[in-house]
Design a protein around this nucleic acid. Sequence first.
RNA 1: GGAAGGGUGGCCGAGUGGUCGAUGGCGACAGUCUUGAAAACUGUUAACCCCUUACGGGGUUCGAGGGUUCGAAUCCCUCCCCUUCCGCCA
Length: 431
Amino acid sequence: MIDLDLVRQDPALFQKVCGQKNITIDIKKFLKVDEERKEIIKEVQEMQTKRNAVSKEVPTMKGAEKAKAIEDMKVLGESLKKGEEKLSAIEIEWNEMQLLLPSIPLPSVPVGKDDKGNVECRREGEPTTFAFEPKDHMTLLKMHGMVDTERAVKIAGARSYFLTGKGAELHLAILRYTMDSLIKKGWNLFLPPLMASRPYFTGTGFFPGSEEQIYAVGNKTSADSPVQDDELNLIGTSEVSVMSFHADETLALSDLPRKYAGYSTCFRREAGTYGKDTHGLYRIHQFEKVEQVVLCEADQNKALALFEEIRQNAEDVLKALNLPYRILDVCTGDMGRGKIFMQDIETWMPSRNSYGETHSCSYLGDFQCRRLSIKYKDSDGKKQFCHSLNNTCIASPRILIPIIETYQNKDGSIRIPDVLQEYMGGNKVIA
RNA sequence: GGAAGGGUGGCCGAGUGGUCGAUGGCGACAGUCUUGAAAACUGUUAACCCCUUACGGGGUUCGAGGGUUCGAAUCCCUCCCCUUCCGCCA
């Protein structure tokens, strides 16, 4: 949870940030509930103190004195029970509100309403030009039997796909290349659970808020339904399970930073995107991603250096593939509740005649680590919450769009990027 | 899925209704001794919440949730997880 002392000290700041991040919460109301909660805790504790004191003496009492004490405690027990009920009711309300509180973005973050407020800060490479009429990725993929969406849609519904033949090979090649490059840099490769229970979606900050984007496992519609409801959810990114790896742990300072490369399938419902990006492999329900997850000490400068590092790792892959891209500073309205600094990488996609988002790099301060209770002991032996960062290193098949479209020849054959050839049986071209 | 046994503090492990937040051991930390270290001895050693400038005080927590009781680690119910054996299966 957010450090509530900060909220109590400067409620106006939090209210302002809620506005900037498009979060609806009345901070004043929350603080009122917070006060009320404290009040009830005090009442309950006073009763508990009394009960504990008397209970300690009861065994030493005898006769009428003992009978009276027990009688008194019965009465006290009743009021205590009522107090506890009142407390648990307000705890629920308090907790629901508390989970909605945002983290405070760094001063450099642009203020904006939505993705239109993002600010381009750098371009690498020039958008590709063609001496012929280029084809879009779906045309090329189908031409070479690399994808089949019709049959996939029949089987699994809209936004589904089969990768077939060279399409499957190329997809795995780019993922393998990326994983190997991170391993060479000393990263620890994780194959995490693809399902996780609610507390970890809450801990990483996806819940509450993103429930409609997340698949639930099981779909028990009635009590006698034979379908089991397992109360698990499919992860939309390995960040959920990899960040949760150290939940409730206290790490040694000497063990920080931790650098984990989570490789997983990612599942997304894409609710509310009907009709948006329906063509091709841009917006789909499942994909594979190599995600960098970093835990570090609570030092903003060190964290920002790591931010540069993980963004650079992603840029290194794009540069090795010779793909033009740009970096955007993501604005407050597009960055999410817990993030305090965020940049997107958009890669040039010829068929869209624009840059399309392929990577997302985030610094969350202690937001996730507070929720997940991931701590370390600092040099004074004091417990601190870690800071966390994450960044896409590669996500496929989306990245196949710029690769295939950029590497196409006039006759529709596709050159295989140099660095991927060793993962494609040494072949240089898909013809 | 069936059968049995378990889940206690950083770890091991004792504890079956009342001065138990919990004996003991290990580990860790501090001190004594030592040129230094080890050994030995002595002491300290949980988290979270509330009140407090602080000193300090109080509360909660023995897998989770409910119940019985004046009082629960201990009794009852439900659930989760782990171990072993059997069955099934990639």
